[in-house]
Structure formats: structure tokens, C-alpha cells
Write a protein that binds this DNA or RNA. Structure first.
Lengths: 340, 340
DNA sequence: TTGTAGGCGTTATCAA
DNA sequence: TTGATAACGCCTACAA
């Protein structure tokens, strides 16, 4: 199947490529109404579809953005298997599609990858998840295209940041447990990387605990953010610290692991252990004993980030220096019990 | 930041763009060893990154493939929120990355979208999920690029198809329940679209049931493949058909809904209702009462599909007419009880 | 071993 | 209102 180009349209319509290009780019005041109509008709007949590579080359805009996810080699079950990622991609993809952009999705390990893809493809913009490396950000600024950071607590200049109030979320979760009569409340956590979201959630926990004089270092469990670590931490709590009555898990996926360990040991949630999660991943509400958790609108995070990014790309909005903080909210379900 | 082009490299190295292009394209026999070295060095110094748009334009290959997911307007929670999708994307993305391709992810509603994106971007290949429309396939063949179908039971000529033995999976699941002493076994199902995967799974169920003379039309529940319908079907079974002791759910997500409805009615799994799912989505094993289910390797489906596609693109493999059937396997966990 | 010239499909500038 | 022409960055015959 031969490719239809602007030239084919031109000769078929009896004009030059230039004229066709005009109507293609909406310069309708420069072309007579009837020529416009004729050209349009030919385009329909021949089923013309523009070539973005050519267009990108001359216009220096690609209608292409990328979503980059930091990638650890350790994670062998696949980069995006975490439901959190898929929900966020969902939001990004949908906005892209509706606004005529295409979306490249890629995991990233080495630093250069970011800028390589971006210059190779002439990306118009980038959505970046959870990046915490200042050097990297500096590098990215060189690219000179709009970038929006999701869940980062450091930022480059002229980059939008969108996130949630993680500290407040951690505080809310912990307060909820305290108000339900719990005193010995553990936190199960990812690695406490400086400026990461889990660190903020931890701080919220710490604040709530200190307010009541309840904070103790041996209530803090730190590992990786995945099911297996949650399970492990759960077992350890049940076996070695049976006086702990409640746990704040800084991610639902951790909470799931803990819940499982409770049941596997013949106990139940919330009778034997109360749990509050974080994220409100889609599965949190699906469990038999639905998880009380801190809700953030993950889909919205992705879609809003993309709206802002595309606005910037299309010059609809100024450069963006402030942070956008989406609200968090405690969703009460069935994983916390009231103690006397 | 000025863009570094092949010309900059050339002038810096004291040669012409042609020579640079040679080393870029591995025509090393055409260039003297020292010039190669010099050019390479300059490229490193200047941090040269090739422009894929330009390259695509002349070579007519883009190093870009797309993953298309059929999109229903009905689904408002976001296209990819289903963990099944995220696991499959994971597999696709990783193979792409490792083999130097980039991946576009897009939902698709209207038929034209497929071919539009593909010609706009000069896609080198396409991974298509669950497409059942013959007309569409015919259209796609026009594109004349490798396409691989995942989970389709109809196929165009010269398209690879990769799937699993859905019929066998349905059969295995049902046999498992029969062997555990169940007689009244319901099936909870998506819409029975001709040639869809759920239809095959249904057939496996039907065969197993008929073998034992157990098949009855009123044991068949059909709706949409999502949590809510599972819940609804579960309630209906418990209330109106309490003599049903077991259910085969043709997707884990349906099973989750059923499980929830059982617990919500004050009953438990598997004491009051035995359940077998299908897919072995990542959550299936995470539940407190882990789900007995038919396992398919979703990640592998994505990665293998992509390997095959890229092989075809790079001419490593011939055109592909056969179907690839990945094995399924019953994973016994805790959602089925033995009846006397 | 290296260079020249033309072209990939599109847009932008300037002229007609 | 339309058309020539050059340019975007790169590749490939072909020539030197």
C-alpha cells in the first residue's frame, strides 16, 4: 500500500503541496473556500494521514510525551505490576488521547535514558514519577521541555510538582488508630529515603504519636514497599511484639501483606490487629474485610498532571513553580476495631 | 541548549556528515579505524543523540511499537486499572526497552485510530489485545507491518496469535470442583461474545459438566467482567440458588466480587461456597483466603508476544501463521472445600 | 577511504 | 489566493 503524502493530495487536487499544507494547518484565511473544500475532499478520498516524523522534524514538536518510571533491577515481577502504577498510567493515557497526544511509557534505570529518549523522539514533555535525585533533575532541565513531577519532594526550577499531603495522611491514619483506643501502634514502611513520600508519611505518624507521648523507635519497621515485606513485618509483629494492637502501613500493598500474615497465623483483622493502609488502591475495597486506608485519587493524579503538562506545552499556562497538593482523606472500612 | 546534529560532529571531527553517518550505521569497513575512533570521541564529547524523526523519515522504520487496548466508554475507572492490563504492559515494556524499541500505549475506541496512529508514527509493529472484529483485522492488514494478537480467537492472515488454552482452563477448573464433590456448580461469566476468551472458558465448563450430566442452563450467570458484576452474581446465587455449592468464575476479578458477597452475607469461603477463579492475577494469592484459580502467566504473555513481534520486525523470524498457546495450570489454594 | 548530491514528508518564508 | 524554494536531520547511491 503506497503511502499517501501531501504531494499526492496536491496533484490530485490540482494545487501545490504548499496549499495543502495551509489547509492542514488551519491557515484557512490564506486559501479560497472552494480550494479548501476540494483539498479536504481529496484527503478524505485518498485517506490521507499526516506523517508525524516529517512534521516533527520541521516544527520541532512531536505531539509525544513520555511517562517515566524509575526502575529497580531488583523488581523482577515487572515494573508496572503494582496497581498503583497502572492506575496512574490510566489517567495519563486518557488525557493524552483526548488531547491528541501520544504516550510513550518506559521504565528507566540509567540516568542518561531520560534525556536520550527525550531528544531522540523530540518529546514535547515528560511526566516523571517519584524522582529524588537532584543531579538528575538538573540534567533534565537542560532538555528545556516542560516536565511534571509526581510524588517528588525535591524539584528543579521551572518544573511542576504534583503530589498529595503525605504528612497529613500519615497523621490522619495514626490519629484514627489513637482515637480508636490504640496505644502501641507500629508503622510499617518503605525505605526512609530522604524526601520520599514514605518519609513524609512517617513524619505524620511520628507527629501524631509524639503528641500523645507514644512514639518509640521499636515500633518502626522499615523495608521495601511490596507485599512480601508487609508479610514479613506482620509476622515479626505478631511473634515478637504481641502487645502491638495496630499498624499503620504506609502503602496498601504493605497492608495486604500484613493482613495475610495475620490470617495465616490463625488470627483475624481487626480483632487481633487493626490496620490502616495508604493509597486506596483499587483492591483495598475489594477485600472481604475491606481496608481502612488513606485515600488518594491516583487516577486523578495522573490525569491532572497530564492536563497541566499539556497546557504548558500548548502555551495555555505559564511556567509553573508552585506545587499542587491533592487532598487525602481517611476512608473508614473494616480493618480497625475500637478498643475499650 | 543547541541541538547536536551529525553535522556538528562532522565539522568537529573534520569529516563530512556522510562519514559520521557511516560509523553511526556500523559501516565500519568503509571508514578507517582512526577516523572511526575520532568520530566516536567527538560524539561522546558533544553528547550526540540521533534524531529518530529524521531517521524514521528516510529509513522508514521507527523503532516504535504500540500496545493497543480496546476501550469501552462505559469503563470510567480508567482503561488500565485492571491488574491484568498492568501485568501485560509490564511484559511488553520490558522487552521493548531491552531491545532498543520504544512503546506507545493507547486505548482505542474508534476503528480508524489504530491505523491512524500507526501511519502517523510509522509504527514498526503492533501488539493488540483481545480484538474480535474481523473487519478491523482486515483493515489492519493493509498496514503491512507485523501485528501480534493476544487473546483473540479470530486472526488475520499473517498475524501471530498468542493465547492460552482457555477451554482447557475452564475444564480444569470445573473438574477440580467436581472432584471435590460438588454437583451444583455455577459459572459466572463475562458476556459470551463469539470467539472471546470467556466463551472458550465457558465451553470448558460445559464439557466438564456434561460429562457428568450436571449441566443446567440455570447455573449460568453472564454479565460483565468486573468486580461489581461478580458481587451481584454472588448475591443472586446465595439468595436465590442456595443449593449451589461452588462457582467457577471466568476471571479473578469476578471471583473477588463473589468472595466479597459471600462474606458480606455473613458466610465464608470456602465453607459456604467454593470458588475457582481464572487468571491468577497478582492479588489472587494475596487474599487472606487465597484464591484457587487457573494460572496463566500474564507477564509472559506480554513479553513473549513482544519478543516474537520484534523478531519479525527485525527479520529474525519468518512470517507467523500458527498460534502460540501458553499452558494453563490449576493453582490450588484455599477457596475450595472437599465435600463428603 | 571519503565526499557529493538527492531525497524522505512536511512547513515556513518570500515572492508572484 | 497560490506557488517556488529552502530547510528540518539523516541516509544512501554513486562518484572521486
Amino acid at each position: 500500500m503506497k503511502k499517501i503524502t501531501i504531494k499526492d493530495i496536491a496533484s490530485e487536487a490540482g494545487v501545490t503541496p504548499t496549499t495543502v499544507s495551509y489547509v492542514l494547518n488551519g491557515r484557512l484565511n490564506k486559501v479560497s473556500a472552494q480550494t479548501v473544500e476540494r483539498i479536504r475532499e481529496v484527503m478524505r478520498e485518498l485517506n490521507y494521514v499526516p506523517n508525524y516524523s516529517a512534521r516533527t522534524l520541521v516544527k520541532n514538536e512531536s505531539k509525544l510525551i513520555a511517562f517515566f518510571v524509575p526502575y529497580n533491577e531488583r523488581r523482577q515481577d515487572g515494573l508496572l505490576a503494582n496497581p498503583f502504577y497502572s492506575q496512574i498510567i490510566s489517567g495519563i493515557e486518557e488525557v493524552c488521547r483526548k488531547r491528541g497526544f501520544h504516550l510513550i511509557v518506559s521504565g528507566i534505570d540509567k540516568q542518561e535514558d531520560y534525556s536520550d529518549i527525550s531528544t531522540q523522539r523530540n518529546l514535547d514533555g515528560i511526566v516523571l514519577l517519584g524522582v529524588l535525585d537532584e543531579k538528575l533533575l538538573a540534567e533534565l532541565e537542560h532538555l528545556n521541555i516542560p516536565i511534571i513531577l509526581i510524588d517528588s519532594y525535591i524539584k528543579g526550577s521551572n518544573m511542576c510538582v504534583i503530589g498529595i499531603d503525605d504528612e497529613q495522611g500519615g497523621y490522619l491514619a495514626t490519629r484514627h488508630l489513637i482515637e480508636h483506643g490504640h496505644r502501641r501502634i507500629a508503622i510499617v514502611n518503605g525505605e526512609l529515603i530522604a524526601n520520599g513520600v514514605t518519609e513524609r508519611r512517617f513524619r505524620g505518624y511520628e507527629r501524631a504519636m509524639r503528641e500523645e507521648g507514644l512514639f518509640r523507635q521499636d515500633l518502626v519497621y522499615s523495608g521495601s514497599v511490596n507485599f512480601d515485606y508487609g508479610y514479613e513485618a506482620g509476622r515479626s509483629i505478631l511473634e515478637k511484639n504481641p502487645d502491638i494492637t495496630a499498624v499503620f502501613a504506609t502503602a496498601d500493598i504493605l497492608a495486604f501483606g500484613i493482613v495475610k500474615s495475620v490470617y495465616d497465623s490463625g488470627r483475624t483483622v481487626p480483632a487481633d490487629l487493626s490496620i490502616v493502609g495508604f493509597d486506596d488502591v483499587i483492591f483495598a475495597s475489594m477485600m472481604q474485610a475491606p481496608l481502612t486506608t488513606i485515600r488518594q485519587d491516583i487516577y486523578r493524579k495522573g490525569s491532572l498532571a497530564t492536563e497541566i503538562l499539556l497546557d504548558q506545552i500548548q502555551g495555555k499556562s505559564k511556567e509553573c513553580h508552585e506545587e499542587i497538593i491533592l487532598p487525602v482523606q481517611l476512608v473508614e472500612r473494616s480493618s480497625v476495631r475500637q478498643r475499650m
